[in-house]
Amino acid sequence: MKSERLQLMLDTPVLQLEAMLPTLAEIHQAAELVYHFMPPTPQYHWPQIDQRAGAEVWIKHENHNPVGAFKLRGGIVYMDWLRREHPEVTTVISATRGNHGQSIAFAAARAGLRSVIVVPHGNSVEKNRAMCCLGAELIEHGDDFQAAVEHVKYLAAENGWHRVPSYDIRLVAGVATWALEFFVAAPPLEVLYVPIGMGTGIAGAVAARDALGLSTEIVGVTSTLAPATALSFAARHVVEYPATTKIADGVACRTPDPAALAVFLKGVSRIVEVADEEVAEAMRIYFSHTHNVAEGAGAAGLAALLKDRAVGNTLGGSRLGTALCGGNVDSNVFAAVLAGAEIR
């Protein structure tokens, strides 16, 4: 039985939605806020990755920030807006698989707000622990992210708490600062590969590219075992589909956000789907070639880039980019990945 909101999304033609994106001035304003809490993250091109790809590959290291993932930027900007526009709010609540929740917990604590975070059962143990240490009150509910979202809506209505969505233009403005930094600091990129969860990361990349007037092709990346976004992109409307990936929880989306999808349809050239095995190999490559730890979703962009390069080793141009957008992987999962063992 679909919720009324889900049915409304499915009934609304995505092309009728306005693909709203922050302006360059708004992204710069967001950056000023973000830099109160963290410096710009670095970008490097690593010789062994270049050699493997047969191209110049630039990596934006969003794993190098206080919560180890790009999502932090959005939470900072959203909480600043919330405190200014809704000073009556005392408690915020949101659903997550981990990195968005860490962002909200981090930013809420610094804004003097109580945060309640809902995760599905079986969520990352170490991400859960990190959210609690950042000050969140954790609730486990449901079998997947969408079930956690529905429970958040119920609790928010029942208790009068402010619900922080997974996709919002204020979140996008904050997250867009990673792409702005990347486009300004790296040489001109021909193609940028960006993993897609609920969409703030890639929408931020589209916003920054368009605001700077660049011609970089932006390619979305998701899992073959979480195909809802790719199916929605192909159908040009929201398609719901179960997510069963065991390693890339950050892209485990069952129901894409229609506003995010409108941005993809306008600003993303195509979507590449990668298998769990390809993601695991990219995690191993990051560790062996750069000695950085990448979570599954954080390595998905590199997995897609290498998958494209394997097709004649020329697809996509000669200067490519992606983000190591998160490094928050449970120790036992990462150990299994390095050992080439099955992820359970």
Rank of each mutant, 00 (worst) to 15 (best):
S124E: 05
H151K: 12
I202N: 05
E342T: 14
A105N: 08
E137D: 15
V125I: 10
V175M: 01
F183S: 09
F183V: 11
W46Q: 12
D143A: 11
A252P: 02
V221C: 01
I76M: 03
V221L: 06
R209D: 08
L6I: 13
Q7T: 14
A310V: 02
V67Y: 07
R284G: 07
C253Q: 04
A260N: 03
P195S: 04
A259F: 13
Q48G: 01
T177Q: 01
V125R: 14
D249M: 02
S115M: 09
H86M: 10
V119Q: 13
Q146W: 09
A179S: 15
I27E: 02
V333L: 05
F183I: 12
D210C: 04
R319Y: 10
N99D: 12
G199N: 09
S318T: 15
A260F: 10
N128R: 13
I76W: 05
A147K: 11
D80S: 14
G213V: 07
D276Q: 07
V77D: 03
I139P: 00
L212N: 09
R5L: 15
V149N: 04
L6H: 07
P13H: 10
A208H: 07
C253N: 08
H237T: 13
K71P: 00
T200Q: 04
H86I: 02
L113C: 08
P242N: 14
T23C: 00
L72E: 06
N159M: 03
T244S: 15
V164C: 15
D210K: 12
K60N: 00
E18S: 12
A207H: 03
